[in-house]
Amino acid sequence: MASPMRIRAKTTDGITEVKALMSHPMETGMRKDAEGKPIPAHYITEVTATHNDKLVLHAYWGPAVSQNPFLNFQFKGGAAGDTVTIKWVDNLGESQTEQATLS
C-alpha cells in the first residue's frame, strides 16, 4: 500500500460520477515467482462506497479484478460539498479508507 487511493467525484445534472483508483497488487495466488514458488494470493475482497452516510455501492471482488483497480460508478442526489467515502478490505485483512469532497 505504497500510494493512497485516488477518488474523483463530480456532479453534473443531478448525477454524481465517482472514479476511484485504488493501489493494490491484486495477486491471484496462481502466479509463481522466478524460483517457481507460488506467490500467495493478495486481493481486495470487499469495497464499500458511501455518500455522506448513505451506502451508494457495495461490491465483493475476486482476484480477477486488475491490479491497481479502477472503479467507476454513478449515483443520484449528490451536492457540492458532500463527501464520498470508499473503503476496501482485502483477503489479508488490510483495509484502506479514503474520502473525497464532491465538486
Partner: peptide
Amino acid sequence: AAFTIPEGTEPFVSLRVK
C-alpha cells in the same frame, strides 16, 4: 466481481478485469 446497487445509484459500473 459482484456489485450491489442500492436505490439512488445508477445501474452502471465500470471496472478493469483480468
